[in-house]
Design a binder for these strands. Structure first.
Lengths: 222, 222
DNA sequence: TAGGATCCAGCTTTGGATCCTT
DNA sequence: AAGGATCCAAAGCTGGATCCTA
C-alpha cells in the first residue's frame, strides 16, 4: 500500500473500489511500513489513507476530492448500531465576508453536491470500514439544506451573532470551529459594535447523517 | 388564610391580586394552621392554596379555574434565572377515543385559551412567587400549537404510536403520564394489532414557556 | 381514577478544545 | 492558517416514576 492508486475512471469504478474495502479492519492492514501502532486515534489520518487508496487527487477548498467525478469523500464514525458518533464538518464559515452568502455558489453546496460516505464502525477497540454510500441530495433535501443555510446566514447578516446557536437549522447547523482554544474572530453586532467570537463552521447534524445512512431513499423534507 | 376568597370580578381584579402575591415567600406565610412544615415539597398543594387565595372556584376538566373570566391558573416552577425547571402539563390524551381529535373543541385549546401564569422561583431552599403573566395566544402562536396538536393526533390516527415520541411538536409535545408506574392503556398499531402502551399527556415544552415568560411579545411562530 | 405537579436516571446535544496534515 | 476529524464536560431533553388531592 505504498503506491498511489490511479484515479477512478468513473463512478462505477470508485464505488467498486469502496465496496471492496467494506468489512476490512482498519488497524494494521491500511498502515504503512514503520507506522504501526496507534493509528486508531490519529485524527484525520485514516481519511487521508482512504483518499490515497481510492485514488483521490489532493482536494482543496475549491476542488472536490475526485475532481473528474465531482465527488467529495467523507469518512463518518458510527457506533456498532450504525449511528453517527458526531456531527460532520462541511466547511468553515466566515463571519466577516458575506461574499459566500449565496447558496448557489456556497462552499456548503459545492461540497454536498455529491458525496461518497464511508462509515467507520467503532466496535470496542477495533474499527471496521462499512458499506459505502454514494449520495446526491434530492431536490427536496436540497431545499431543506438551503433553508438552513439561509437561516444561518440571515442571522449573521442581521448582526444577530449571539442568537446563532447550534440549535438553528434542521439538518445543517453552525458550531464552534476553533483552530486551537483561544482564537477569536471579529464580527459585528446588530448595532455595528464589534464582537469577539469564536470562529464557526458548518456541520451536518448526526441525526441527519444517521437517517441518511440508514435509509437514503426515505429521508425527505416536509 | 383560612377563608375562601371571593371570586374576582374581572381580569383587573384577578391580576391585581396576583401581583400583590409576587415577591412573597411561600413556606410558612401561605400555610394553614397545623399544616406547618414540609409543604415545600408537597406536590400540587401550593397550586391549590393559590387557587383559594385568588378566589378560583373548583376547576374541572370542563370548566376553567375562573369560569366567569375564562382563565386557567398555572403555577410554573422556575430557577433563579427564570427558566422553567420542567415542562408544563396541559391535559391528558386518550389514545383510544378520537372524539377530542379536533383542535377547535380540544381540551388543549380550551385550557390554553387564557392562562394566568404564576412563576414559583426556587432559590436553594426557599420558594418565592414571581410576577404573574396573563397570556392569551396570538393567532400566530395558536397556529403553531394547532400544527403540533395535529401532528400528534395524526400519528395516533395512523396508528404510529411507536413513532410518537416527546420529540414531535415544536411547542406542544406528548409525554408519558403514568398515574402510578405500571398502568397501561390499549391502543392500536398500524396493522390493527393491539398495543399496550403507557398513557400520555399533552405538555408544553420548557423552552416554550421559558420564552413566553421572558418576553411574551416577541415570541412568534415562523 | 383523573387532574395536577415534581423528581430523576440516562441519553443526547451543545459548545467548545485538541489533534493532525498541508 | 485552513481543511478535516475526534474528544469531552456540562447542559438540556426524554421517558418514565412518584406524589398529592378531590
Amino acid at each position: 500500500m505504498n503506491h498511489e492508486t490511479r484515479p477512478p475512471r468513473d463512478l462505477e469504478e470508485l464505488l467498486h473500489r469502496a465496496r471492496r474495502l467494506a468489512g476490512h479492519r482498519v488497524a494494521p492492514p491500511l498502515l504503512e511500513d514503520g507506522e504501526a501502532g496507534s493509528l486508531l486515534h490519529q485524527k484525520g489520518k485514516l481519511g487521508q489513507l482512504l483518499e490515497r487508496v481510492l485514488g483521490a487527487t489532493a482536494g482543496s477548498a475549491q476542488r472536490p476530492d475526485f475532481p473528474d467525478l465531482g465527488v467529495e469523500l467523507k469518512t463518518i464514525p458510527v457506533d456498532a448500531s450504525g449511528k453517527p458518533r458526531e456531527s460532520t464538518f462541511v466547511s468553515s464559515l466566515s463571519l466577516v465576508d458575506a461574499d459566500q452568502a449565496e447558496w448557489e455558489v456556497s462552499a456548503v453546496r459545492r461540497k454536498l453536491q455529491k458525496v461518497l460516505w464511508i462509515p467507520l464502525v467503532t466496535q470496542g477497540d477495533a474499527r471496521v470500514l462499512g458499506a459505502p454510500l454514494l449520495w446526491q441530495p434530492t431536490c427536496e433535501q436540497e431545499q431543506v439544506l438551503r433553508a438552513d443555510f439561509d437561516d444561518i446566514m440571515g442571522m449573521i447578516a442581521i448582526g444577530n451573532v449571539e442568537g446563532l446557536t447550534a440549535r438553528v437549522g434542521r439538518w445543517l447547523q453552525a458550531r464552534p470551529k476553533a483552530a486551537h482554544g483561544g482564537v477569536r474572530t471579529r464580527a459585528y453586532g446588530a448595532r455595528e459594535e464589534p464582537l469577539s467570537v469564536l470562529p464557526r463552521g458548518f456541520y451536518l447534524r448526526a441525526s441527519f447523517t444517521g437517517a441518511l445512512l440508514e435509509d437514503p431513499g426515505t429521508l425527505a423534507g416536509a
